[in-house]
Design a protein around this nucleic acid. Structure first.
Lengths: 191, 191
DNA sequence: AATGGTCTATCTAGCGATAGGTAGGTAAGG
DNA sequence: CCTTACCTACCTATCGCTAGATAGACCATT
């Protein structure tokens, strides 16, 4: 049974790595940090994930899949409400965990990231941009959203704005700023 | 003479630290990296900056001041052109150096940053938000910009959008995305 | 039922590299 | 002679990672 869906300690390790990376980034956590969280010795982590690059890749992959699942479950009525529900995923993470999106975190660290992790980051943003772009197109087709905007460009702006606002809101300890940014983005796209 | 305006090797160290931090972040560079760039031994850096926290603080401070100077020199005619000129600072750094804004970089690393550096980051964003907010207010007063937007909220969104777009554009090696985001933001604020 | 072998998941111990930082010395210049 | 700006040499801590051992679970054969 390959890496399809880790269980037990392997999943504990993955979750601890995710939390640590969302908090301090790839360069900001160590195997010993994970080990202490999970309750094993750092050497034992290598049994489940051979290298730090492997661990980070698996973490990023699981995050990307989990995020895709969450967007897939957004099923509110209007396009504007879909964007709000999407942004609420960011708001919730920031407010309840004080963490930022792993995708954004890793994107800023790209210069010191193993290739295999970089690839996961690319795929994450490709998926996110696609999902938002579809919502924007639907909103335009139904007349809820401004028709004069380039949907692909707005979608990219929407995603990267939320990412940036998330980083900076946490940095300044002003989570409300992220919510304000989300609301302004939704306001601006509406007809 | 205190840290008013470093010259000679002290400034070389500062510039190397800035470049390295804009590339890889606070956790991603070492005294030995700086030493190799500047052409001295890593121990000699401590003569100019006692600790890594001191070096990072001085670097962030110099960056904040330099950035303020650049915004102060933006003197184009219309408010929209001011925002474009502001965004062009980001675009230029990304396109010519492949680097991201030090403020945004450090904001994402806030959880593993010394307090004295965190303070510089806060001041950086306070200054940037203020500058943009003033431009937005002027644009609204002169009828160039939509009057129904909250200027303070839009300013924060504008800054954090550029920051986020910068991070992600570099991460995906798509610098055009940053330019697209800038243009869309300017388009959205106009009346 | 007891035996022996293999697999899983962990451990202890430690490797070489590198981190930030320190102590003490030295050559040059006012 | 003292200050400046560096040096060599080294410290302790931590990094990712490896080797080898071990305890328990499962499993087939005797």
């Amino acid at each position: 049974m390959p890496a399809a869906a880790p269980t037990g300690k392997a999943m504990d390790i993955l979750e601890s790595a995710r939390t640590l990376m969302m908090d301090r980034g790839f360069n900001g956590f160590s195997f010993r940090d994970v080990a202490a969280n999970v309750g094993i010795k750092s050497a034992s982590i290598h049994y489940h994930y051979a290298t730090k690059a492997d661990l980070a890749e698996a973490t990023a992959h699981a995050y990307r899949c989990a995020f895709s699942d969450m967007t897939a479950q957004i099923n509110t009525s209007s396009a504007a409400e879909k964007l709000r529900a999407y942004g609420a995923l960011f708001v919730k993470t920031l407010r309840e965990q004080g963490q930022v999106c792993l995708g954004g975190m890793l994107a800023t660290e790209v210069a010191s990231l193993p290739d295999q992790v970089r690839s996961e980051v690319s795929q994450f943003f490709a998926e996110q941009n696609d999902w938002v772009q579809n919502v924007v197109c639907d909103g335009q087709a139904s007349g809820q959203f401004r028709a004069d905007l380039d949907a692909a460009m707005f979608a990219k702006m929407f995603v990267s704005s939320l990412e940036g606002a998330m980083m900076i809101s946490r940095g300044l300890e002003r989570p409300q700023d992220l919510e304000d940014t989300l609301e302004m983005l939704v306001q601006l796209v509406q007809a």
